[in-house]
């Protein structure tokens, strides 16, 4: 890999890390969900500094070209992230449903209470 490509990879991974940290700082991204992305950014950075690591892993697992190993793990990582997001979405949908139902029930309760409160009460 040329030194120029190496430099681009490093700049790319550092930018990714900075974007993630900025998102957390602005509270656009929860710390909980940022961890996995910080880890991903860290691994990108490590690989772009020490390309040797990628070559060794790729040789060990029997990939014919190191870039194939990179693509394979990249796609695997993305699939897992998306699956995780679907799980989170399902959980949120369930919570949202319960919340909606409770709001509907409470709204009625409040309306009923208001009505009984506004009726003339001789003891007051």
């Amino acid at each position: 890999m040329s030194a120029r490509l190496n430099l681009f990879a490093m700049i790319g991974s550092i930018s990714l890390l900075l974007i993630i940290l900025e998102l957390v700082r602005r509270k656009y991204l929860r710390e909980r969900y940022s961890l996995i992305w910080i880890m991903a950014g860290g691994i990108f950075l490590l690989l772009s500094i020490r390309l040797e690591i990628l070559r060794r892993i790729s040789d060990f697992l029997g990939f014919s070209v190191p870039s194939n190993a990179l693509f394979f793990f990249g796609i695997l990582f993305l699939v897992l992230i998306v699956l995780g997001l679907s799980v989170i979405t399902s959980r949120l949908a369930e919570k949202n449903k319960v919340l909606t139902q409770e709001v509907a029930l409470l709204k009625k309760q409040v309306a009923d209470l208001e009505k009984s409160h506004n009726e003339p009460n001789p003891h007051r």
Binding site: K97, T100, Q101, V103, A104, L105, K107, K108
Partner: peptide, 14 residues
């Protein structure tokens, strides 16, 4: 009649 209202559409099951 008695009324309960969802703030937005949630589907028949909910």
């Amino acid at each position: 009649v008695l009324i309960l209202e969802h703030p937005y559409n949630m589907g028949i099951g909910a």
